[in-house]
Design a protein around this nucleic acid. Structure first.
Length: 287
DNA sequence: ACCCAGGCGGGCG
DNA sequence: CGCCCGCATGGG
């Protein structure tokens, strides 16, 4: 069935290309208007029609839960005019917004976010995608087409990785992160329930997440932002750190703590969105 | 060949 | 604590 949702200030392409977890296992077509991913035993196909300012999302799937999921996943409830207004404190941000107008944060599965961002450390986006794809292909539940052929695989739950060893993940290209993956799968299956955590208590959640081996401050912030949807998280990676130091501190080195405080004061409760636009602009804009 | 990539854990002072 | 170092791997 096809479900339609009106969207404004939404860009499927920029959202996909912003390299959030969603993008690690989804595929999209050349002009960026069609996206598909495996979910709930089927392939969901999303088509974006119309303009960024005023358009429509068509969700093709077997039942209408996919439309509901897409609404959550693409954060369609977000009031972008308000958010843009709040984070447009200077021309650097507003330039990035006009370049990538309609780019949304995405709301992803917590475990998927834990795993992909463990893989992300000291790594580049291309290889993160490759490693993640290898893991999905090896451990993800297959989705079958009408002729019984495999047409995609879902992101594997932590339990599905328990049979694998560090060596297995090395073979999939995960490198030194392999031992973290093994331990995280174990820990998230047996010791904690990521789906019971509340995204609203930032400090408590961060503390809990950082007990996972391989999850430090930055990765925890990514999980809180893109896995739990708390816009107060402001992940500071090399790009964001350099950008903030260059733009707002005359190139002087600042401690992470200082940058956190700066972000909170400058962009307030929407600082997660500010981070997205800073990061994406720094990563793709000037290179 | 050399440098870097959405950092982190462990060890040391 | 705060700082520093090594770390798998592949692409530019």
């Amino acid at each position: 069935m096809i479900k339609q949702i009106d969207v404004s200030l939404f860009s499927l392409r920029h959202t996909f290309e912003s390299a959030q977890p969603l993008s690690f296992y989804a595929d999209y077509n050349e002009n960026g208007s069609v996206l598909s991913y495996a979910e709930r035993g089927e392939i969901v196909k999303i088509t974006h029609k119309g303009s960024v300012e005023k358009g429509m999302l068509e969700i093709l799937s077997r039942d209408n839960s996919a439309a509901h999921d897409a609404f959550t996943r693409f954060r369609l409830k977000d009031r972008m005019p308000t958010i843009y207004k709040n984070i447009s404190t200077d021309e650097h941000i507003s330039n990035s917004i006009s370049l990538y107008n309609g780019m949304r944060l995405t709301m992803n599965d917590p475990w998927e976010t834990v795993l992909t961002f463990i893989i992300s450390q000291f790594n580049n986006v291309k290889r993160i995608r490759l490693i993640t794809k290898n893991i999905v292909n090896k451990f993800g539940r297959p989705v079958f087409g009408s002729n019984g052929e495999i047409i995609g695989r879902e992101f594997p739950e932590s339990k599905a990785l328990l049979k694998a060893t560090e060596k297995d993940f090395m073979a999939l290209g995960a490198g030194f992160r392999s031992k973290y993956i093994v331990e995280a799968a174990e820990y998230c299956t047996h010791n904690i329930d990521l789906y019971k955590f509340s995204g609203s208590n930032y400090y408590k959640l961060k503390e809990d997440l950082m007990l996972i081996k391989g999850v430090g401050e930055k990765v925890a912030d990514c999980i809180i932002l893109m896995g739990y949807g708390n816009l107060k998280a402001f992940p500071i990676d090399v790009h964001v750190k350099r950008t903030v130091e260059r733009l707002y501190f005359k190139g002087r080195k600042k401690k992470l703590r200082e940058i956190q405080e700066f972000a909170e004061e400058r962009w307030g409760r929407y600082r997660g969105y500010a981070q997205l636009y800073l990061f994406h602009n720094a990563r793709t804009g000037s290179r």
